[in-house]
């Protein structure tokens, strides 16, 4: 994790630098079906993060040698816009985004019923428009809503959420300063209904007990985020249903 700094991340009242309690998430907003052209899409605002996800497919997998004869592959491209961070990010994939794309793809492949679409690819594009710590988790959360919006058969939705440690306190959902100057970060992809952990990383310095406490915090929070995902999809389908009813009434 980051450098040592004389910055107080937890104040004397036990509150965090942005005023949150240790087990408190940043405000999260999720919207499904935000792009016209994509087969499915979602937009997530998570604190100061602004993230778009789009899904195309199932379609023929390219390049061909990637095709699997018995199932579809889920290809993910996690990308940060050059203007999404303080110092302009050079466009194109760097090593960090290649790694994030890979683990996100693995997490989503677990829930997508890939066996239904041999030789095809389901392409997921995650575009970070504004970054403020926790983009891989917000991106995974957005991507699973976009997949559902695209009508891709899935066993469940995946929730991305992180926890970590700052000033020796285990906290949920690290913000920017906490990410930079904190002691540990544990991003996680979790399926609340089955209790499966499909993405897990950690860096920093934690005892086993601290790590387990952090994971438990994330799992609790994931239940709430899962609700937001489902609510976004429900709203989207209500809107589609309303539009269709109006169309039918118009014809009559």
């Amino acid at each position: 994790m980051g450098m040592k700094m004389d910055i107080e991340l937890i104040d004397k009242n036990g509150l965090r630098i942005d005023g949150r309690k240790p087990e408190e998430l940043r405000p999260i907003k999720i919207e499904a079906g935000v792009l016209k052209r994509a087969d499915g899409s979602a937009y997530v605002e998570w604190g100061k993060n602004k993230i778009l996800a789009a899904v195309y497919g199932p379609r023929e997998a390219h390049p061909r040698h990637l095709q699997k004869s018995n199932k579809a592959i889920v290809q993910v491209r996690y990308n940060m816009a050059p203007f999404s961070v303080g110092d302009r990010k050079r466009p194109g994939p760097d090593r960090r985004s290649v790694e994030i794309s890979k683990i996100t793809s693995e997490a989503l492949e677990h829930v997508v019923m890939t066996e239904l679409f041999p030789r095809s690819s389901i392409d997921v594009f995650i575009e970070v428009l504004q970054a403020n710590a926790g983009t891989r988790c917000a991106g995974l959360t957005a991507a699973s809503v976009a997949l559902a919006d695209a009508g891709i058969p899935m066993k469940d939705l995946v929730v991305g959420v992180a926890s970590g440690k700052v000033d020796d306190v285990v906290v949920l959902d690290l913000g920017k300063e906490e990410d930079n100057y904190g002691q540990a970060d544990v991003p996680m992809g979790y399926i609340p209904r089955t209790g499966e952990i499909v993405l897990l990383q950690m860096d920093g310095d934690m005892t086993q007990e601290e790590l387990f406490k952090a994971m438990e915090m994330s799992m609790d929070a994931a239940k709430y985020i899962y609700g937001l995902q489902k609510e976004a999809l429900r709203k989207r389908y209500e809107m589609i249903a309303r539009e269709e009813t109006e169309e039918i009434e118009g014809v009559q």
């Binding site: 499966e196 952990i197 897990l200 990383q201 860096d203 934690m206």
Partner: peptide
């Protein structure tokens, strides 16, 4: 000291929380 410094999960299967606790130990 038995402190955890880094972790990485891979492949497209899932772990239960109990399995992860077991692995970390």
């Amino acid at each position: 000291e038995g402190r955890v410094r880094a972790m990485q999960k891979g492949l497209n299967g899932g772990f239960s929380y109990a399995e992860i606790q077991d692995i970390v130990r």
